[in-house]
């Protein structure tokens, strides 16, 4: 399998990260603008990579851990670009791009590995389950990253440090909106993904929609956590810092569910 586009995308993510960091250090919005275009290039190259894989072996992307992680990075970056086109919160990229780089570096450890899909994960529903779940989780991750920046900006404003960083970070209102959007769209997608998964589980594991597997349990925990967040947001009216802090906690759970628990799982892990 050709990984040229993957490597090119990784390089572009890296460049975008560097651009964002320089823009923060040098305090130049122009650099962030350029970095945003580079990030767009990275997402495009990455898309070509997926297309490449798709033509090679059909709709069976993201079934090993490394590809799933790379797909995750793509979703987070793509969603961020879509959001920033509307809100002009360019500097948020300074958190999104490094996050994508970390994921991509993790992905690159195994992107050239062989593709052995366990029997349980072979079936028409599996790619749908995986794709929907990862898109949902990607949007959640974006919501949480906005939360991280919200906490930084909130701190700057409350401590009256208006001269430095605060001047270049997005406004609290915009960050809160991104958090809202991420939760709002991520939730139905992940829900659908989990439902498809459980439908498939019934066929694959015979009879039950549910297997007491660490991965399943953690994924359900992630779903519950974000469901709670969304409920507090929409029904109770939690906003701002409280949600931002909880979003960060949720992201930690999400990452563990995604990567860490994979190694504990027996029947449901990526290869």
């Amino acid at each position: 399998m050709d990984t040229l586009f993957f490597k090119a995308a990784l390089a572009a993510y890296f460049l975008a990260t560097a651009g964002y960091l320089v823009s923060l250090v040098a305090r130049r919005v122009v650099m962030a603008k350029i970095a945003t275009w580079v990030l767009g290039l990275a997402v495009a190259l990455h898309a070509v990579h997926f297309l490449d894989m798709y033509t090679e072996r059909g709709f069976n992307v993201a079934v090993n851990l490394f590809e799933a992680v790379s797909f995750f990075a793509w979703i987070v970056s793509g969603a961020y670009l879509a959001v920033q086109a509307r809100t002009k919160t360019r500097v948020l990229g300074a958190i999104v791009a490094p996050f994508a780089v970390l994921l991509m570096m993790l992905a690159s450890l195994g992107i050239e590995g062989t593709l052995a899909i366990p029997d349980a994960l072979q079936g028409r529903l599996v790619p749908i389950h995986v794709t929907l779940s990862i898109i949902g989780e990607g949007l959640f991750a974006l919501a949480s990253l906005a939360g991280v920046m919200y906490c930084i900006q909130d701190r700057q404003i409350r401590r009256r440090r208006m001269g430095g960083l605060a001047r270049y970070l997005p406004s609290l209102g915009d960050l809160d909106n991104i958090n809202h959007t991420g939760l709002l769209w991520g939730f139905p997608l992940l829900t659908l993904g989990l439902i498809v998964g459980s439908v498939w589980a019934k066929t694959a594991w015979g009879g039950s929609n549910w297997a007491a597997d660490p991965k399943t349990i953690w994924s359900f925990a992630v779903w519950c956590f974000y469901a709670f967040l969304l409920h507090q947001r929409l029904a109770i009216g939690w906003k701002g810092r409280k949600i931002a802090v909880l979003s960060i906690a949720a992201l930690v759970v999400l990452i563990s569910a995604f990567i860490g628990v994979n190694f504990l799982s027996s029947v449901h892990k990526f290869t």
């Binding site: 809100t87 404003i157 208006m162 605060a166 997005p170 406004s171 609290l172 209102g173 915009d174 909106n177």
Partner: peptide, 9 residues
């Protein structure tokens, strides 16, 4: 300026 930093638009 502060209103924009806090509320956005």
């Amino acid at each position: 300026e502060m209103a924009k930093k806090i509320l956005g638009s």
